[in-house]
Design a protein around this nucleic acid. Structure first.
Lengths: 119, 119
DNA sequence: TATTGTTATACTCTATAACTATA
DNA sequence: TATAGTTATAGAGTATAACAATA
């Protein structure tokens, strides 16, 4: 599903961070590096790339001068929405090849797989 | 599971190629790039890294002078076997947290997921 | 002429260590 | 002193384009 994207070759990692800042308000560099499970320097670099592409902006936190809040630009929000639309469409198409019984089997396995993935 | 590895920090990609050459005889650079779904130059680079680490060797094909066959060294085979052992142990441990009913649900979902992944 | 591999080049992601600025 | 972010540096993976060697 991650391969479903909008033309314009924004890499996967950068796209994932875009989804993060669109879906959550006021994320800092540190919060983003926790979310994506990378180190702060790595996230810093990725955010730089997003800002250079005009997809995100940095702004200082009002309450803590050390923190930096990353926000999506209009262009960034548009990219996320288009990508989401494409992914939902792809997923729906995949799901249409699954019978009701198969769907039930997947539903049954889903929470077990999630538990194993989180452990 | 892929995170389960032997100490010595051989990266994931390189380890995956090692499993490829241990599990299949006489693989060429081209065959390996197909197997790992990367371009030949990329695979060439990875094989170079393996040779530098002493895990694999290159040798010319007897029947086609253009082809290069990649083979695991003793050290390479040892690394693969130890890694496999660790991964099997990890997997068994995970499986031990799954009840018989849950196991049945996973077994039912498995072929469906495989079909979707291949499509 | 087509195929196989290689080299050159460039971009992305990742990490650790060391540094700056703020709390 | 501790925390948030940044810069410096280095290793790894990926791709495309251009090239050499062989079929």
């Amino acid at each position: 599903m991650r391969l479903e994207r909008v033309d314009g070759d924004v890499p996967d990692t950068q796209l994932s961070v875009m989804f993060g800042i669109v879906n959550n308000e006021g994320l800092t560099i540190g919060a983003l590096s926790d979310l994506e499970r990378v180190t702060p320097p790595s996230m810093n670099r990725t955010v730089n790339a997003l800002v250079e592409r005009g997809l995100a902006t940095r702004s200082g936190s009002p309450d803590d001068g050390r923190k930096v809040i990353v926000t999506a630009t209009d262009s960034g929000m548009q990219l996320v929405e288009e990508t989401r639309r494409k992914r939902v469409a792809w997923f729906s198409k995949q799901l249409s090849t699954v019978s009701a019984d198969e769907r039930a089997a997947l539903d049954a396995a889903s929470p077990i797989l999630r538990r194993l993935a989180d452990s």
